[in-house]
């Protein structure tokens, strides 16, 4: 099956800056794909290359099997929801949403009807006559979304669309985006630097660092089996264990990750591995403990009930060797 978007060794350099460096990605049709990475890691550049605002310095791009290099943005059936919405201030909400239909010379009544439908889809019926300036941030975000989906693009690119929203609105928008994507069946490519958002929403996630893709996989793979220190560190709350520590348990010298939930606390007497509690914070049903074990700092998340370990107590530390995930990459 042809990929919705296929990047083959795509690079985009700005002088000495390698904003994208030999990126390979295959994004399947209908997939909800997230690009995750710290600030400046090249996520926006990658989206702009797919949208056609930037031309790659090297490499090959296909969109639904068709070569995209040299094709201007207006000939790509790919729409973008911009981070700062980019709504047209001189048009009202309805005309903003109907913009792409207007360009295609759809007649006025028909395009307004379709725009109303799109507004209804983002729960903004009745806001058509307003100017973008008269809307809240969350409402503008929905208008931008309605404008991008009104003509049913093949691929929708979203650049941190929820970045400016407060937590509650953000969570409800996450669900709405997800269900919208399911009902439309459009391929979504979603940029975020919030790992929780990426892991909870996406079918697959690509983790970016310094213009390179470090790992691509399902949220479970990324979370449970990070292939590098960078991914383990960025994606999550996993413990990172240095090669010296790993060697004492597995005999193999490699960086490893260990999920905090996999660690059990036992009484210190007779335990094979002992550690000192360095921090303790109550999280409701669980307790998060900082531990110092054999020269490594770990943290564990354990059930709150029956755990009375206090800071500076010595405890036994227990985990199954299989829970230790060895990473194939050096960094």
């Amino acid at each position: 099956m042809t990929s919705a978007v296929s990047l083959q060794q795509v690079s985009r350099h700005f002088g000495p800056i390698r904003a994208m460096d030999a990126v390979d990605l295959e994004i399947a049709p209908g997939e909800f794909f997230a690009m995750l990475g710290p600030s400046g890691s090249g996520k926006t550049t990658c989206l702009r290359v797919i949208a056609g605002f930037e031309q790659p310095t090297a490499g090959h791009i296909e969109i639904f099997g068709e070569t995209a290099e040299g094709v201007p943005p207006y000939r790509r059936n790919v729409n973008t929801v911009f981070q700062d919405y980019a709504l047209f201030p001189h048009l009202n909400v309805l005309d903003n949403v109907a913009y792409s239909l207007m360009l295609r010379k759809v007649d006025k009544a028909e395009r307004h009807r379709q725009a109303e439908d799109a507004l209804a889809m983002v729960k903004l019926s009745g806001y058509g006559a307003r100017r973008p300036g008269q809307l809240s941030g969350g409402q503008r975000q929905r208008v931008a979304l309605a404008r991008a989906i009104v003509n049913r693009p093949k691929v929708l690119l979203l650049d941190e669309p929820l970045g400016a929203l407060d937590l509650k609105l953000r969570e409800s928008m996450q669900e709405e985006l997800k269900s919208l994507q399911r009902s439309l069946g459009i391929t979504f490519i979603f940029v975020t630097h919030d790992q929780g958002e990426a892991l909870s929403m996406a079918d697959r996630v690509a983790v970016f660092s310094d213009g390179k893709v470090m790992q691509v996989g399902t949220p479970e793979e990324i979370y449970n089996r990070p292939n590098s220190r960078f991914v383990a560190d960025f994606v999550g709350s996993s413990n990172l264990l240095p090669p010296d520590f790993t060697a004492t348990i597995t005999g193999q010298r490699a960086w490893a990750s260990l999920r905090p939930e996999a660690i059990h606390i036992t009484p210190s007497d007779g335990a094979a591995m002992q550690g000192r509690v360095t921090a303790r914070s109550f999280m409701g049903s669980t307790v998060r403990l900082g531990l110092y074990v054999n020269g490594a700092s770990l943290h564990a998340v354990v059930p709150a009930s029956g755990n009375s370990a206090n800071v500076d107590d010595m405890v036994g530390v227990l985990f199954a060797p299989e829970a230790l995930h060895l990473m194939e990459r050096e960094t």
Binding site: Y74, T80, F82, Y99, A148
Partner: peptide, 20 residues
């Protein structure tokens, strides 16, 4: 970014000029 958005939504440079 309004110019980008217009192109993204399918406007040729001339249409972007005229409508935005």
């Amino acid at each position: 970014n309004l110019i980008d958005a217009s192109g993204d939504l399918g406007a040729t440079p001339f249409q972007t000029f005229w409508h935005v």
